Amino acid sequence: TYYTVKSGDTANKIAAQYGVSVANLRSWNGISGDLIFVGQKLIVKKG
């Protein structure tokens, strides 16, 4: 599943929404920190 980042989103918020850990969200998308951008497409695997 892909999720498009919206204004006000955070890695924590997206992870919680899908029931996954922030560490997994980072791993699936090659993100090292919490910096995400509006319009960015993230791979999300439901927990």
Rank of each mutant, 00 (worst) to 15 (best):
T1A: 11
T1Q: 12
T1P: 09
T1E: 13
T1Y: 13
T1N: 10
T1I: 14
T1W: 14
Y2E: 07
Y2Q: 06
Y3V: 07
Y3E: 01
Y3Q: 01
Y3R: 01
Y3W: 03
T4I: 15
T4L: 09
T4Y: 12
T4G: 03
T4Q: 08
T4N: 06
T4P: 01
V5P: 02
V5F: 05
V5H: 02
V5N: 01
V5E: 01
K6S: 07
K6D: 04
K6F: 04
S7A: 15
S7W: 13
G8M: 05
G8L: 05
G8F: 05
D9W: 03
D9Y: 01
D9Q: 01
D9L: 01
D9S: 01
D9V: 02
D9A: 01
D9G: 00
D9N: 02
D9H: 02
T10Q: 04
T10H: 04
T10M: 03
T10Y: 03
T10V: 04
A11C: 15
A11H: 07
A11Q: 11
N12P: 11
N12W: 14
N12S: 15
N12T: 14
K13Y: 09
K13L: 10
I14S: 00
I14Q: 01
I14M: 01
I14G: 00
I14E: 00
A15K: 01
A15G: 04
A15W: 03
A15F: 02
A15V: 02
A15E: 02
A15P: 00
A16V: 10
A16P: 02
A16L: 12
A16I: 11
A16H: 11
Q17K: 13
Q17C: 12
Q17H: 11
Q17R: 13
Y18M: 09
Y18I: 07
Y18A: 07
Y18H: 12
Y18C: 10
G19K: 09
G19H: 09
G19N: 10
G19F: 07
G19S: 08
V20W: 03
V20H: 01
S21T: 13
S21R: 05
S21Q: 06
S21V: 04
S21G: 05
V22G: 04
V22R: 04
V22I: 12
V22A: 07
A23V: 10
A23C: 11
A23P: 06
A23D: 13
A23I: 09
A23M: 08
N24E: 15
N24V: 12
N24P: 01
N24G: 06
L25W: 00
L25D: 00
L25P: 00
L25V: 04
R26H: 08
R26D: 03
R26E: 15
R26G: 06
S27R: 13
S27I: 13
S27E: 15
S27W: 10
S27P: 00
S27A: 14
W28M: 06
N29W: 04
N29A: 02
N29V: 01
N29L: 03
N29D: 01
N29M: 03
N29K: 00
G30R: 09
G30M: 09
G30Q: 11
G30E: 10
I31A: 05
I31W: 07
I31C: 09
I31D: 04
S32C: 12
S32I: 15
S32T: 14
S32K: 14
S32E: 15
G33E: 10
G33L: 14
G33R: 06
G33Q: 08
G33Y: 06
G33C: 09
G33W: 06
G33I: 10
G33T: 09
D34R: 07
D34C: 10
D34L: 08
D34W: 07
L35D: 15
L35V: 12
L35R: 12
L35C: 13
L35E: 15
I36D: 02
I36F: 09
I36C: 04
F37N: 08
F37R: 09
F37W: 11
F37C: 10
F37Y: 13
F37T: 10
F37G: 06
V38L: 08
V38A: 09
V38I: 11
V38F: 05
V38G: 03
G39N: 06
G39M: 04
G39W: 06
G39C: 05
G39E: 02
G39R: 03
Q40R: 06
Q40F: 05
Q40V: 06
K41W: 07
K41D: 06
K41F: 07
L42N: 00
L42Q: 00
L42M: 06
L42D: 00
L42G: 01
L42Y: 01
I43C: 09
I43W: 10
I43A: 05
I43V: 10
I43H: 06
I43S: 04
V44R: 00
V44E: 01
V44Y: 03
V44Q: 01
V44T: 05
V44H: 01
K45R: 13
K45D: 10
K45I: 11
K45Q: 13
K46T: 12
K46R: 12
K46P: 14
K46F: 14
K46V: 14
K46Y: 13
K46A: 13
K46D: 11
G47R: 10
G47F: 13
